Amino acid sequence: MSCKWNSIEPACLKGSLASVLQSIEFDQKWFKIALFFVGFNPVFWNVVARLEYRTHFLTRLAGGAKRGCYLLAFTIFSLGVARDLCFEWALRSQPVSAVLDQELVRNAGRVCIGVGQVLVVTSMYQLGVTGTYLGDYFGILMDHIVTAFPFNVSNNPMYQGSTLSFLGYSLLQGKPAGLVITLFVHTMYSVALKFEEPFTAKIYAQRDAQRAKKE
């Protein structure tokens, strides 16, 4: 039985999925390194940020809370660059899938990249460096919850925008390995949020309680 690439027949879908998975070289070196950075980075910044919150070691090391936050921001940004480079190098070494090698798929990839980058850039603009890079763990808190775009369309535009960018680049290149890495990116961000959101809420609740006492 012959199947068109976009057929919705169960047999065709099963065959297409098998073809996509078979084209991934799981043992490729840069693929493994990219997965390592995707998993390591959020664990690193969550562990370091909580250690800073409890001990203020970065504040002491850098000579101030703001400087400590900038130091952590530089480290997180550098790790992100390393992750993105490894992701790109991994995809260069991976085969293209005939299932994904379609203009419609590439156009979808371009849209994902565009939307993803808009979410990331506008999120950083709204939050600034300290708001983006865990300044609340250093005691640098925002006065009000940001509700302007992109936060009026997404609760976590930085993470969601980054995930969309990974997805878009994978589709644009037609590389199934990129989709696997993107899925891992989404999973790690989802896990990170399980730790970050309650802890951040606790920090702001303590701040509000202190303000109420003073008043």
Rank of each mutant, 00 (worst) to 15 (best):
I181P: 12
Q94R: 01
A34F: 01
Y53F: 11
K14F: 11
Y125D: 01
T187K: 06
Y137N: 05
G178T: 09
F184G: 00
E103A: 15
V129E: 02
L193G: 03
R67A: 03
L172Y: 12
K14A: 13
Y137A: 07
L61N: 05
I181W: 03
G68S: 07
A73Q: 01
S93R: 15
E52R: 02
A73F: 03
F26I: 08
A209P: 02
S170A: 15
F40K: 05
I33P: 04
L100Q: 12
Y53Q: 10
G15V: 06
G128Y: 04
L134D: 06
S93E: 15
L100A: 10
A18M: 10
R211M: 13
L61K: 02
D136G: 05
K66G: 01
Q160I: 14
T163C: 13
V129Y: 03
F199N: 00
R106C: 03
L35C: 14
S190W: 14
L134P: 02
G174H: 11
R83F: 05
N6Q: 10
K14H: 11
P176R: 13
Y133T: 02
L91Y: 04
E197P: 00
C86Q: 03
N152Y: 02
L100K: 10
L17R: 08
V111S: 07
V120K: 05
G168C: 09
F77I: 01
V129D: 01
S93D: 15
T182G: 12
S162D: 05
C3Y: 15
V105D: 03
G63H: 06
N46D: 04
R54G: 00
A18I: 12
G68K: 01
H144V: 13
D208W: 09
G139I: 04
N41C: 07
V81M: 11
V115N: 02
Q206L: 13
I76D: 00
K32P: 05
F57D: 07
E215V: 02
K213V: 09
R60C: 07
E197D: 14
L17D: 00
S123I: 01
I140Q: 05
S162Y: 11
T59Q: 04
G109T: 07
V180N: 07
G139E: 08
F36M: 11
G174C: 12
W30Q: 15
P176C: 08
F151E: 10
E9A: 14
V153Y: 11
T59R: 00
Q117Y: 07
T147H: 12
L172K: 10
T122A: 14
V43H: 09
K214W: 04
W30R: 14
F77Y: 03
F151I: 08
G116P: 07
V185L: 06
K4V: 00
D101S: 11
S19G: 05
C86H: 07
A73W: 06
V111P: 11
V20F: 10
V191L: 15
K213H: 03
D208L: 13
S93V: 00
G139L: 06
P42N: 06
A98C: 09
Y53P: 05
G116K: 02
V118G: 04
